[in-house]
């Protein structure tokens, strides 16, 4: 049992949780994730660790995209997650690279935060780009401003910041000839794919954190397998971060759609 100490809706479909998990918090590092179950009949799903105090709590940010995330977002402070296993995956590679662009798209904003903070603490110049469909889906702007040298915000509909997608300011920087030593991008698969395409021809090292369907999270089932550099890799133990230019994003998107029919079945059942 993992008690929820605090929770808050960041937008209609996005909820933030502060959970008591001392052993996991003590070992967590930026870039890692956990596997959670809301209740006894629930699915095991991966969630990136959005923050941790190293002593008592971890923070998770959940976007409702289907049945399991819908059920999770019904939980509140005073409630609990039945199971949380972690921290899982390799931590982010943190080093002194120079100027690092930290790009968070939609729900990806959450996992980018601890990575950007760690990179800042390691002496990097941090340019943050946060993007979402509309203004109510942008969150943690203040947190990012306190650890970034510059923060740029984009919204698809122009309701906040610049109108457009995250790749546009990125391409502007690249065209200007500004020094970019590394890019870290986390968000929907299609966003990571386009960030990768934007940097590939300029030889800018780009790291993405992949989000396939997972079952166990410790490397025993292979459900999270993706192709990186033409080889099969398990995201849960070989990742979750990979060199974006090697990732087959189309295959990942295809594999993410495998249970669409079952998701619809649950949604229809809920609506009846």
């Amino acid at each position: 049992m993992f008690p929820i100490i605090n929770s808050e809706k960041l937008s209609p479909l996005v909820k933030w949780f502060c959970v008591e998990a001392p052993d996991i918090s003590a070992k967590s590092r930026a870039g890692q994730f956990v596997i959670v179950r809301a209740n006894e009949k629930g699915e095991r799903i991966p969630l990136t660790i959005a923050d941790f105090d190293g002593e008592k709590t971890i923070e998770l940010v959940v976007q409702e995209v289907g049945e399991s995330t819908r059920i999770i977002n019904l939980l509140d402070a005073g409630g609990a997650f039945l199971n949380i296993a972690g921290p899982l995956g390799h931590p982010s590679e943190i080093g002194r690279f120079g100027t690092v662009f930290c790009i968070g798209g939609g729900i990806g904003i959450a996992p980018v935060y601890p990575i950007a903070r760690a990179l800042k603490n390691a002496g990097n110049t941090i340019i943050t780009i946060l993007g979402a469909r509309s203004s109510d889906l942008i969150f943690w702007e203040d947190k990012f401003r306190s650890i970034s040298d510059e923060v740029i915000i984009t919204t698809d509909d122009g309701s906040y910041g610049k109108k457009g997608v995250v790749t546009e300011p990125l391409k502007e920087f690249i065209e200007k000839g500004d020094k970019i030593d590394r890019v870290v991008a986390i968000g929907p698969c299609v966003m990571m794919k386009y960030v990768s395409l934007a940097t590939r021809d300029h030889g800018i090292k780009t790291i993405v954190s992949l989000n396939p369907i997972m079952l166990d999270g410790t490397g025993m089932c292979g459900g999270c397998r993706v192709e990186v550099g033409g080889e099969s890799k398990f995201v849960c133990v070989d990742g979750p971060e990979f060199d974006a230019h090697e990732v087959d994003f189309d295959l990942l998107m295809m594999r993410q759609s495998v249970y669409q029919k079952e998701e619809q079945q649950c949604r229809l059942k809920g609506e009846l």
Binding site: T218, C221, G222, G223, R225, V226, L251, V258
Partner: peptide, 22 residues
């Protein structure tokens, strides 16, 4: 011994292919 072996043949990452463990 929980690490599932795959054959590494073409098409093994298509939807509908499972390891027995999964």
């Amino acid at each position: 011994a929980g690490l599932p072996w795959f054959m590494n043949i073409p098409g093994e990452n298509l939807n509908g292919v499972y390891s027995a463990n999964e």
